[in-house]
Each structure stands twice: as C-alpha cells, then as structure tokens.
C-alpha cells in the first residue's frame, strides 16, 4: 500500500512538471523559481537540522565497541573497531562512511551441517548494492558539475571520461547510470519481496526510492532518447549559478523540466526525511566517540551535582548496633 501511494505521488509530480512546463508554459517557474526555492529549503533545512543535532548535548561517552580495548601493552588493541583516541575514531568513521563497514560485518563464516560452504547472505548483498547506489549517486552528482562550471575543471572531465570508458552507444553510456538504476531496483525489490523488510517499511521508505528512480530515468531519457540541447541546458544552469537566471531562447525538451523539478522536490524533501542519515551518520555517538571514558573525564553539561548517594553516615545510623555486634569498624560509637 505504502509503495503504491509513493508511486502515485511521484507519478503526479512527473505529470505536474510535464503539464506545467509544457502545456501551461511555466518554464520560468520550473526552470528558475522552483530550483532556487529548493536550494534554499535544502540549505536552510539541512543546516538547521545539523545544527539542531549538534547543539543537543552528548551526555555520555557511549561508543559501541567492536573489538579489543586498549588496556595492557602486550594485548593487541583493535584501534579501528575500538578506538581510544581521535585518530582511531577518524579511521573508524571513515571506514563506516566510505565503506559501510557495519553492514559488511554481516559476512560471517557459514558453517553448515554438511561441512563449510558458502550460503546466501542477504546482508552482504545489501552492503554491496547500498555501496553501488551511494557511489554511483555521488559520481553522477559530480559529473553534473560540468553544467555548473565554466570552464569545466579537469577532474570532472576525467571523471566523465572514465565513466564512459566502455564507449557504448551514442551519446556514450555512462556506467554509473546503469549501476545506479540496477542498485535502486535492487533496493526497491528487496523492500517489496523480503518479508521482514516489507513489514517494517513505510511510505517514507518507498517515496525517496521512487523519486530517485524517476530522477535517474528522466535524466537518462533526456540524454539517450530525447537528446536534449546540452548547450541550452548549460546556458540555463550557468544562469542559475551566476545568479543571472535566463530561460534560453533555444527550446529545451520538456523532459529536462521534469528532471529538474524532481531534483528540486528531492532537495526540498531531503532535510525532513530519513535521507538526513547522510548528516546523522557523522554525529552518531555510538560511532564517532573514542572508547576513552575510563582514561579521561567526559563532561555531561547537564550533570546534576545535587544527586548524592545515600550517605555512609546514614547507612551506619541505620545499622550501627548490628555492625558493632558483628565486629565491623564504625565511624561513630553508639
């Protein structure tokens, strides 16, 4: 149900852009105003969310330790899974953010009744496709910089060159596009057909998947099928970047407006959704703290010094006679 709703919402968005920028001819709205609005909402929303998280205190030092602590010099510490200082923590975070290490952890040795053999392990697939998804997304994003820079920096050109190194079709096919779509489809199908994931999924899980899929497909449609006028697109995008927005005189295919509208929706949706895991992962206290709270003091800003233990004196008052009788030392004689 949640999946259907999400699908229809995304479909409605496509139709809206199609009709709005095409039939109604609101090219300025879809090409200029909405993208600017989206960028503002994104920046403001993203920053305020991050700031909101960042200003919330971390009262306790609670890393989840995934390996041997640093204790005695002759016991080998596991500095990446149980860091005791900043550099170890930076490596732990880097591995987490860049290689999704925790998801990879799932690859356990598969012992079976009839001897060791490799079995199907869903979580490993999840790791692989999640990695494919995020990296191809990043690559595609970086490639798009060529539309927002003039002259296009060398690294971006290099990136484009390697991404299309297989030289398939005209215009040449980017491998990242393919990988991206395959990965989204995997993530989607997993949500639908994996019973347990399906059970926990809600609309805000399906909606971004459909939205991103629609963005990918509309982008590919522009490039490979509609073959939009790239010069005109760049005129528009450069206009946006230089704050002198214009709708180019040469017509741009309507699919471009659909694409840019969906991207705008994604930008606006981003700060209010689970997609904020992009920022959250850096701030997660179980990962970004070293396990050092036995070595040095971690300060809790709202620690209440008024909370005192039931004092020894009160304890002794309670049991003094019995203590004396049992021969236990007491501070105050009876």
């Amino acid at each position: 149900m949640a999946a259907f709703y999400s699908f229809f919402v995304v479909l409605a968005l496509v139709v809206l852009a199609w009709a709005g920028a095409g039939e109604a001819g609101w090219k300025g709205l879809f090409g200029i105003y909405i993208p600017y609005l989206a960028l503002l909402v994104f920046l403001f929303g993203f920053l305020s969310k991050i700031l909101n998280w960042a200003k919330t205190p971390v009262p306790f030092c609670i890393p989840t330790t995934g390996g041997q602590q640093k204790s005695l010099p002759w016991i080998k510490n596991n500095p990446w899974d149980n860091p005791y200082n900043t550099s170890g923590t930076v490596i732990r975070m880097a591995l987490e953010v860049l290689t999704f290490r925790s998801l990879f952890r799932n690859t356990s040795v598969q012992l079976q009744q009839d001897g060791p053999k490799v079995g199907y392990n869903s979580a490993k697939w999840l790791w692989l496709f999640a990695l494919m998804f995020h990296y191809s997304f990043l690559l595609i994003l970086l490639r798009h910089l060529r539309l927002f820079t003039n002259p296009v920096p060398m690294p971006i050109l290099k990136l484009e060159f390697f991404d299309s190194i297989l030289q398939i079709g005209v215009p040449v096919l980017y491998q990242s596009d393919m990988i991206f779509v395959v990965a989204i489809l995997f993530l989607f199908l997993r949500r639908v057909f994996d019973g347990k994931v399906n059970y926990i999924s809600i609309m805000s899980d399906y909606f971004p998947l459909f939205l991103i899929l629609a963005i990918a497909l509309s982008g590919m449609w522009m490039r490979y099928i509609a073959k939009v006028d790239v010069i005109a697109v760049k005129e528009l995008t450069m206009g946006l970047v230089t704050l002198h927005p214009v709708i180019p005189k040469d017509p741009i295919d309507i699919s471009f407006y659909v694409h840019i509208f969906l991207v705008s929706v994604l930008f606006m949706y981003f700060p209010f959704s689970k997609l904020m895991h992009m920022g959250g992962v850096f701030l997660s206290p179980t990962r970004n703290m070293p396990n050092f709270s036995r070595r040095q003091m971690w300060v809790n800003p709202w620690n209440d010094p008024a909370i005192k233990p039931h004092s020894y004196a009160a304890y002794e008052d309670d049991f003094r006679e019995k203590m004396i009788e049992a021969g236990l030392p007491v501070d105050k004689k009876a």
């Binding site: 356990s108 598969q110 012992l111 079976q112 079995g119 199907y120 392990n121 019973g195 347990k196 399906n198």
Partner: peptide, 13 residues
Amino acid sequence: ETAVLWKKQKDRF
C-alpha cells in the same frame, strides 16, 4: 515475516 527470515538465513548459529 519471521518465516521468511528463518528460511533464508542459513547460518546455524
């Protein structure tokens, strides 16, 4: 959803 999981995960531990 439980049955699916129990069918799929093959690791005996």
